[in-house]
Design a protein around this nucleic acid. Structure first.
Length: 408
RNA sequence: GCAGGGGUGGGAGAGUGGUUAAAUCCAGCGGUCUGUAAAAUCGCCGACUUCGGUCUACGCAGGUUCGAAUCCUGCCCCCUGCACCA
């Protein structure tokens, strides 16, 4: 593959918000590629939550592109910076995590990341390797390369400043620490979400100070969540987890609004622009339903993360359960084996039984009552109007999509 | 340390002595409709209940009152400015 083609792949879907920056980065990348050596590529991930989401795999897919072209890819875990909490993606301060939490999260992260990245070609490191050891003197030297004004100019800081919201010094230091990672890794390229631009730039500044050639910055768009508006994130609840079951994932992808479909295709699949265009054209000519495009999207994504077979099964499950509204054959089971008679009531059981995600079918008995009042519960296909006792074999439907089977 | 502002339900934010389990908005949940989309539309959204009620809740602890989220006292926490320090 020639350099031009490589460049085309590597720069695809980047998002800089500034055309000049983009063309500069592209030129720099081209120069590096022409050196014909394996480049050092990395992307950092803060282990602040256990679950990676589809949002995270955008950068991982880009790492994989580099990987496939023979470059050295480092999956960097923000073991140290996670302690600070990145101010980038929020207008508010993040809670700090304990070291144990972070370590546990980090382990989970790598396991999940290998769904996208090739384990044999990926180096996993954590930035506490070097940030933990840095001396106060070195630290102050790092600080001296930045001014307060530079930080205050940053959009999310200036907003908070103007709103009289607190800005903690530790948050300022975040970008600095992250920039130092680039120095330590002698990075040629760093990948990140477009909200990370400031942090990635800090890397360039520091690398120059350390007489390294500054890294090329590749920023990618932020994936919106299932609500179609806000950034996908665990804390907002609009996320699709990388670790979710194919059926679940299929369903969640089906629930994104139409407006988000195109960007999902671009960011999460390898479909070409031409193919995508022709898909949408078919919809316009009514050769295809809009929902079918979305199903295709879900199939593509699940194929990549799991397998084609599982994607196909998930699609069938979806069609049977939700489109034809059949009762699924597999559902959450609840054993009443050793329950006392008074615990066999529908309300009690819904309050006890857990969904796969760990939530209860109903948070309280009051909620069950409300659901009953609202015609939301049916047993074996019949809507019920009052609390009853359940027997083994009963199939309970709660709302549209939640099912529970009673077993011995 | 000083001065000012503030702490209300998942979030935002009303309410300054009684019809307040607490307006309104957002989020969430459910019914109808549908494509687990969007839009519409109707409803729910502290807990427990033998459905008559009971209990808990407006930073914490006391107090005044027939009655407090609302008044008083003490404490805790947050923000801004100043001072101290540099």
């Amino acid at each position: 593959m020639n350099i031009k083609e490589q460049l085309q792949i590597l720069m695809q879907n980047t998002d800089y918000g500034d055309a000049t920056l983009k063309s500069n980065m592209q030129k720099e990348l081209e120069k590096k590629l022409l050196e014909k050596r394996p480049l050092n590529i990395y992307c950092g991930y803060d282990p602040t939550a256990v679950d990676l989401t589809l949002g995270h795999i955008i950068t991982m897919r880009k790492l994989r592109d580099f990987q496939q072209l023979g470059h050295n890819v480092t999956f960097l875990i923000g073991g140290f910076t996670g302690l600070i909490g990145d101010p980038s993606d929020k207008d508010k301060k993040r809670p700090m995590l304990t070291k144990e939490q972070l370590e546990n999260n980090a382990k989970e992260y790598t396991r999940q990341a290998y769904k996208i990245l090739d384990p044999s070609l990926t180096t996993i490191r954590s930035n506490d390797e070097w940030l933990e050891k840095i001396s106060s003197k070195e630290f102050i030297q790092l600080c001296s390369h930045f001014t307060v004004a530079q930080f205050l100019e940053r959009d999310n800081f200036s907003k908070r400043w103007n709103a009289n919201d607190p800005i903690y010094l530790s948050e300022f230091l975040y970008a600095l620490m992250q920039g130092y990672d680039a120095v330590q890794l002698k990075a040629d390229v760093q990948i990140g979400g477009s909200d990370q631009l400031f942090n990635l730039m800090a890397g360039r500044i520091l690398q120059r100070e350390f007489n390294q050639s500054p890294q090329v910055i590749i920023t990618l768009p932020i994936l919106v969540g299932t609500d179609g508006k806000l950034r996908m994130s665990k804390s907002t609840g609009n996320f699709i987890g990388l670790d979710e079951e194919p059926n679940e994932m299929f369903g969640k992808i089906m629930s994104i609004p139409d407006s988000a479909v195109k960007s999902y295709f671009n960011l999460l699949t390898n479909i070409s622009d031409d193919e995508l265009d022709s898909l949408f054209k078919m919809v316009n000519n009514s050769e295809m339903q809009k929902i079918d495009i979305k199903k295709k999207l879900a199939e593509y994504v699940i194929t990549e993360i799991f397998s084609m077979i599982e994607a196909h099964q998930a699609k069938e499950y979806f069609e049977n359960t939700f489109q034809k509204r059949n009762t699924p054959s597999e559902m959450v089971e609840y054993s009443i084996n050793d329950n006392k008679p008074e615990d066999m009531k529908l309300s009690k059981i819904l309050h006890m039984a857990e969904l796969p995600n760990g939530e209860k079918f109903a948070k309280s008995l009051s909620e069950v009552r409300r659901l009953i009042d609202q015609n939301a519960i049916s047993i074996n296909g019949n809507k019920i109007s009052e609390d009853t006792l359940l027997n083994s074999g009963d199939e309970v439907r709660v709302g549209r999509f939640k099912f529970l089977r009673i077993v011995d």
